[in-house]
Design a protein around this nucleic acid. Structure first.
Length: 644
RNA sequence: GCCUACGUAGCUCAGUCGGUAGAGCACGUCCUUGGUAAGGACGGGGUCACCGGUUCAAGUCCGGUCGUAGGCUCCA
């Protein structure tokens, strides 16, 4: 028999007979590895453990705790779940079942939605199938064979998928016991490799994500290579729920919703008001330094304005319906741009006036579909950190980059590290419909913006067909505590609307020219940004943002008078402090303050009265001992100043 | 908008088989004056989301509406 040389990642080499499988190699190395390995990479290609290796090869064996191995494990668990569902619900038809971030799902067409009870039964059946140690075998099929097999099984969704595959492409399916599933693979070699899994929840999901299609039933689950890793993930999910801004926002009295006010219309409580004011202060300082001018515009406008802007054509479904005022249609504004365009147009502009940067923390209202509402992150009334920058084509690159840099300035202050920059482009197929019909402008602006980004050297991903209707944009995506994705900051180029509003400037040569417009919102909206910050900080705001920065706690009645003086002096020094002069024991007062996540506690008893000092206790740190109030004020002021 | 689940005191939740509602925390009063995460006693607080139906009787069963949650699609 021929011998082949297998090279391992550490560059060590070993001879094996030709036709050896990765699984056999793992067995030759050790029983533990053979048990744990889930997938192999042969000459760079991810492959099943049972595939034969015919000639010299580089081999990497992945266990379930590697990124590659975990993804395969998740995917194979999805198959195991589908097998269990098919055994329990014979009429169920399978659709698709991929691995996603730390989880998997599978969509089924069933008569009745799954109940929690069904999920338990499915999970039990999965354990049974795992114990049965069914080997998972790949089958290579032609298109005709594949259609034949899945037609007999009446798997209509699989047939739909197969029919879209090129006729000469090889089709693979995986078989375990009586269950066969169309799949590209790779997969684990046996169901016994899948041991630590949990089904999480089920929900409706449209076939191919299109609401015109039938609604299928989706089950989400997760799987790991060890009991410990599974439990860690489940604990993480529990912890994430505790950080959820909807829960913390209520507990910390930041915002609320009320049935009679309406869904998606948050009411900011006083503590939320403080956070908003601090953010606005930061934004105003930053924008003042960057040459922005602040304007204010009404919440309502005549329909004709939105006809001109194109909102009624491209954005109407997200707008509140018109209200009739003296026989004229008025709309509540979904964006501030048309008003800012009017301000631009209010006086003749020279190239010397540009860039003109008009900023407004403007309230907008958007009719989001009810199912889309999500705490503060997706609401119907919002206040945007909005501004429109009107500039010449020659100024565009610098202005565009200045906006991107402003994002990063803010992100540094807030310690936001996990985000993705996303450059959204148009699809020419949508011109005249989803996008304004300006093909040349689209191409030119997209090139300019890309050039700016590339020269700056920032990392971004391109998203085709995700642009705004008036131009390409760069967004910053972040993730909520429970893993939902949101656009935070946004920077949008608009080459179309200024033309529609007849916005012009006189250039150096005395000719009329059209300015470009950049729509930007580095701090997103108050609603989304604060929702995000609540989760980002887990409710423990840095001192400069904290609604209550400190609390004065007298130890007994004997020190109440002194506590009042301390409280007064803190207020006079500009701090947001409260005083707990109730008759609780000091430990109870501390506990209450901790539960409110108050950062600084100034504890005063008879000793402090005598020494004219305060005892400082910081959250997460504990007792820091006695200081003079002047020292405390100085330290805290510096901390606030530095936005630590 | 669609599918499913849920909605009881300010908050978190219990309430069995249909028989007119309960706990803890919070709140109020009083006692207690205690040194770094819960001192004690007493008390107030409910149109059981809303509307309708079944029933002698509905928090409980049925229907509708509103809201919330988990998803699908879309956006700041």
């Amino acid at each position: 028999m021929d011998e082949i040389t297998v090279t391992f990642p550490d560059n060590s080499k070993q001879k094996y007979p030709s036709g050896v499988t990765p699984l056999e190699i793992a067995e030759s190395i050790g029983p533990r590895l053979a048990k744990d390995v889930v997938v192999a990479r042969v000459n760079g290609e991810l492959t099943d453990l049972t595939n034969l290796i015919q000639s010299d090869a580089e081999l990497i064996l992945y266990t379930g705790d590697s990124e590659e191995g975990h993804e395969v494990l998740l995917h194979s668990t999805a198959h195991l779940m589908a097998q269990a569902v098919k055994e329990l619900f014979s009429e169920a038809k399978v659709a698709i079942g991929p691995a996603i971030e730390k989880r998997f799902y599978y969509d089924f067409d069933v008569d009745k939605p799954f109940t929690d009870d069904d999920l338990k039964k499915i999970e039990d059946k999965m354990r049974e199938l795992s114990k049965a140690d069914l080997s998972v075998k790949q089958r290579i099929l032609t298109k005709v064979e594949a259609i034949d097999i899945f037609s007999k099984l009446k798997e209509v969704y699989k047939i739909e998928i197969i029919e879209e595959i090129e006729p000469d492409e090889l089709i693979t399916a995986y078989e375990q016991g009586d269950f066969i599933d169309l799949c590209r693979g790779p997969h684990v070699s046996s169901t016994s490799k899948i041991k630590y899994f949990k089904l999480l929840n089920s929900s409706g999901a449209y076939w191919r994500g299109d609401e015109r299609n039938k609604m299928l039933q989706r089950i989400y689950g997760t799987a790991f290579s060890s009991k410990k890793a599974l439990n860690e993930y489940l604990t993480f999910l529990e912890e994430a729920k505790k950080r959820d801004h909807r829960k913390l926002g209520k507990e910390l009295e930041i915002f609320m919703f009320d049935d009679e006010v309406g869904p998606g219309l948050p009411l900011w409580l006083p503590k939320g008001g403080v956070i908003i004011e601090e953010l606005e202060k930061l934004a105003k300082e930053t924008e003042d330094r960057a040459g922005y001018l602040r304007v204010r515009t009404p919440h309502l406008s005549k329909g004709i304005l939105y006809e001109k802007s194109g909102h009624l054509k491209h954005y109407k479904e997200s707008m509140y319906p018109a209200m009739d005022v003296d026989g004229i249609d008025y709309y509540i504004k979904p964006m501030n741009c048309p008003h800012h365009h009017k301000i631009y147009a209010s006086s003749p502009r020279s190239y010397r006036d540009l860039p003109l940067r008009l900023a407004e923390y403007g309230s907008c209202y958007r009719y989001e579909k009810s199912g889309q509402l999500f705490g503060l992150m997706r609401v119907r009334s919002m206040q945007m950190n909005d501004a429109h920058i009107y500039c010449t084509p020659g100024q565009f690159k610098e202005e565009f980059l200045a906006v991107c840099k402003m994002y990063l300035y803010y992100f540094d202050i807030f310690g936001i590290e996990k985000y993705q920059m996303r450059y959204s482009l148009h699809d020419p197929a949508g011109l005249g419909g989803k996008y304004v019909n300006e093909p040349d402008l689209w191409i030119k602006t997209e090139q300019d913006a890309r050039k700016a980004l590339d020269e700056w050297g920032i990392n971004y991903v391109e998203k085709p067909d995700e642009a705004a209707f008036y131009g390409p944009k760069i967004d910053v995506q972040v993730w909520s505590a429970i893993g939902k994705e949101f656009t935070l900051a946004t920077n949008q180029v608009d080459f179309a609307i200024p033309g529609r509003f007849g916005l012009t400037y006189i250039d150096e040569k005395g000719n009329e020219a059209a300015p470009l417009c950049i729509h930007r919102a580095p701090l997103s909206t108050h609603e989304r940004f604060i929702g995000f910050l609540i989760e980002h900080y887990g409710g423990d705001f840095p001192l400069w943002l904290a609604p209550i920065q400190g609390i004065v706690l007298p130890i007994s009645e004997k020190s109440i008078e002194y506590a009042r003086q301390v409280y007064r002096r803190m207020l006079d020094a500009g701090f947001r402090v409260t005083l707990d002069d109730r008759s609780d024991k000091i430990s109870a007062k501390i506990r209450k303050a901790e539960l409110k996540k108050i950062n600084v506690m100034l504890i005063v008893g008879e000793k402090e009265v005598q020494e004219e000092k305060v005892s400082v206790r910081r959250r997460f740190v504990g007792d820091l001992g006695k200081s003079s109030l002047a020292e405390v004020i100085e330290d805290l002021s510096r901390e606030i100043e530095e936005k630590r």
